[in-house]
Simulated assay, not measured.
Amino acid sequence: MNAYLEQRALKISTAMTLLVASLGVAFGLLSGSRSILFDGVFSTIDAAMSLLALFVSRLVMKESSQRFQLGYWHFEPMVAALNGSILLLLCFYAFLNAISGLMEGGRELAFDVAIGYAVIVCAACYGMFFFERRLNRRARSEFVRIDTQGWLMAALITSALLVAFIAALLMQDTALAAWTPYVDSALLAVLTLCFMPVPIGIVRRAMGEIMMIAPPALDAEVHASMVPVMRRDGLLEYSSHVAKSGRVHTIEIHLLTTPEFARDAGVARLDEIREEIASRLSIPGEQRWFTLSFTAERRWL
C-alpha cells in the first residue's frame, strides 16, 4: 500500500467533501429543500469522519510504542464502525423526517435553485469518483476504496435528485402541479433508503474486524499454503489462526513435529519452512503479522 497516495487522496477528498457540504447546506436553506439540506449535513459528517480517518491513517504508519506495542492498526475498524454508525443514525432520522413531511402535506421549494445545486454537485462527485478510483489502483488503500464508493453513491443519488427536480419543475404548469409539494419529502425518503446500505455495509465489515472474525479467503489461503509444507518428513499436523484488523492481517501457525525434527539442520531448517510458507501468502509483508511456532508436544497446538 502506498501511504503517500492514501494521504493525498484523503486530503483532497476531505476538502471536496467540505465544499459539497457547504453547498448542500447553503442551497438547502435557499431552496427550502430538506433533501438537499440532508445531503449537506450528510456530507458534513462524512467530512468529519474523513478527517478522523486521515488522522488514523497517519497514526498507523508510526512505529509501535511502549503503550501500543502491537501498533495502531486496530483503530482503523473502530473509526470505520463509528463512521458507519453515525451515518446510519442520520439516515434513519432523516427518513422519519421525510415521512413526517409527507403526512403534513409536503412543502413548496425553489426548483431552479435546487437544479443548480444538483448540477454543480454531480460534476464534483463524478470527478472525485474517477480521480480516486484511478489513484487507488496504485494506493491499494481500504480507506480510499470506501471513500471512492461514497463518492459514487453521492454522484448517483445527486443525479437522481437532478432528474426529479427537473421533472417537478416541468410539472408546475400542468395538472400534476398539486403533487409538487410532495416531491422534496418523497425524494428525502428515497435518498435515505438509498444511502442506508452504505453505512450498514461499513459497520458490518468493521464489526467483523473488531470481533476478529476469520476472513474466509485468508483462512483458505493459509491452509492451501500448508499443504506442500506438511509433506516434509517429521511434520505431523498444524493449527492455524487468522484475523484482520484494518490493513493488517494476523496469521498464527503452530506446527507439531517429531522430537527429532531438524535436529541436524537446526534453526536454518525452521527458517526455511517459515520462508516457504511466507512466499505462498498473497498478503504483502508490511501488511501481515506472521507467527510460526514449532513444538513436539500436542498440548501446545
Results as ranks from 00 to 15, higher is better:
Ala3Leu: 09
Glu6Thr: 15
Glu6Trp: 01
Ala9His: 03
Lys11Ala: 07
Ser13Arg: 03
Met16Thr: 10
Met16Pro: 00
Ala21His: 04
Ala21Thr: 02
Leu29Lys: 01
Leu30Cys: 00
Gly32Gln: 09
Gly32Tyr: 12
Ser43Gly: 06
Ile45Thr: 12
Asp46Gln: 09
Met49Thr: 03
Ser50Trp: 01
Ala53Val: 11
Lys62Leu: 14
Ser65Trp: 12
Gln69Ser: 14
Gln69Met: 10
Gly71Asp: 08
Gly71Lys: 07
Tyr72Trp: 11
Trp73Cys: 00
Trp73Ser: 11
His74Ala: 11
Met78His: 00
Leu82Gly: 13
Asn83Leu: 04
Gly84Ala: 08
Leu87Val: 02
Leu87Tyr: 06
Leu88Ser: 14
Leu88Glu: 09
Leu89Cys: 13
Leu90Thr: 14
Asn97Val: 06
Ser100Ile: 03
Ser100Thr: 13
Gly101Trp: 11
Leu102Ala: 08
Glu104Ile: 01
Gly106Leu: 11
Ala110Cys: 00
Ala110His: 10
Phe111Gln: 06
Gly116Met: 11
Tyr117Leu: 11
Tyr117Gln: 12
Val119Ile: 15
Ile120Glu: 02
Cys122Val: 10
Tyr126Gln: 05
Tyr126Ile: 04
Gly127Met: 11
Gly127His: 03
Met128Asp: 06
Phe129Gln: 04
Phe129Ala: 06
Arg134Gln: 09
Arg134Leu: 05
Arg138Phe: 08
Arg140Gln: 14
Ser141Asn: 09
Glu142Cys: 00
Glu142Asn: 13
Val144Phe: 09
Ile146Trp: 13
Gly150Leu: 08
Trp151Ile: 06
Leu152His: 09
Ala154Pro: 03
Ala155Gln: 09
Leu156Met: 12
Thr158Gly: 02
Ser159Asn: 02
Leu161Trp: 04
Ala164Pro: 02
Phe165Ser: 05
Ile166Val: 15
Ile166Ala: 13
Ile166Arg: 07
Gln172Lys: 15
Gln172Gly: 00
Ala175His: 05
Thr180Gly: 07
Leu188Lys: 07
Ala189Cys: 10
Leu193Lys: 02
Leu193Phe: 11
Pro197Thr: 08
Val198Leu: 15
Ile200Arg: 01
Ile202Cys: 03
Val203Thr: 10
Val203Phe: 07
Arg204Gly: 02
Ala206Leu: 07
Ala206Tyr: 07
Ile210Phe: 06
Met212Gln: 15
Pro215Arg: 04
Pro216Trp: 07
Val222Gln: 03
His223Gln: 11
Ala224Ile: 06
Ser225Leu: 02
Met226Glu: 10
Gly234Leu: 04
Glu237His: 10
His241Met: 14
His241Cys: 05
Val242His: 06
Gly246Trp: 01
Glu252Trp: 07
Phe261Met: 12
Arg263His: 13
Asp264His: 13
Asp264Thr: 14
Ala265Thr: 15
Ala265Asp: 13
Ala265Tyr: 04
Leu270Glu: 11
Asp271Cys: 03
Asp271Tyr: 09
Glu272Gly: 07
Glu272His: 08
Glu276Asp: 15
Ala278Glu: 14
Leu281Phe: 06
Ile283Gly: 00
Pro284Asn: 07
Gln287Met: 08
Thr291Lys: 08
Ser293Cys: 05
Phe294Lys: 10
Phe294Thr: 13
Ala296Asn: 10
Glu297Cys: 10
Arg299Ser: 14
Arg299Asp: 12
Trp300Gln: 09
